[in-house]
């Protein structure tokens, strides 16, 4: 198929970015096939995945300073506007993960104690959002 196939010439920066963002989103190392697809998507979908200079700078800062991309990303969303570059990159990873079979973090089997689990997830999400907001303010990202 067109989408698969290795991209030996892909920039190291993009590989580093994929490894960093995937780990932050799914708390796992990125599988090789997913990494290759991430690079391939950037090669094929240049227009959709190109960012304005300020967006690129935000992604770069997050990676360089080892910030929390997943906590920061919701603060970059603007209703009715194009998705921010960071949102696009996280969405891309999520789609690649979901479409690739045996996806990390996606399960159709609910937890046995669903409500407490949901409460914990919401608390964790609130903490991540708070951390993201603080980091975003500290580094001037929003």
């Amino acid at each position: 198929m067109k989408i698969d196939g290795s991209l030996p010439g892909a920039p190291d920066e993009l590989r580093k970015e994929a490894v960093f963002l995937y780990k932050a989103a799914f708390n796992k190392s990125i599988p090789d096939t997913l990494l290759e697809r991430y690079l391939r998507a950037h090669a094929d979908l240049t227009k959709q995945l190109e960012g304005a200079p300020f967006e690129l700078q935000i992604v770069k800062t997050i990676i360089e300073k080892n910030l929390d991309p997943v906590g920061i990303e919701p603060w970059l969303r603007k209703k009715g506007r194009q998705h921010h570059l960071l949102t696009r990159k996280l969405l891309l990873l999520s789609f690649l993960n979901e479409c690739g079979g045996n996806p990390a973090g996606i399960s159709r089997s609910p937890d046995r104690f669903a409500l407490p689990c949901m409460a914990l997830t919401v608390c964790a999400a609130a903490l991540a959002l708070l951390r993201g907001r603080i980091q975003a303010a500290r580094y001037g990202l929003v």
Partner: peptide, 20 residues
């Protein structure tokens, strides 16, 4: 993944929440 942009939460939390 199509529903993530509509969910005002970090991506990882949203996916965890969806299953329940």
């Amino acid at each position: 993944s199509d529903l993530l942009p509509e969910t005002p939460l970090p991506v990882s939390s949203a996916l965890r929440l969806f299953k329940n």
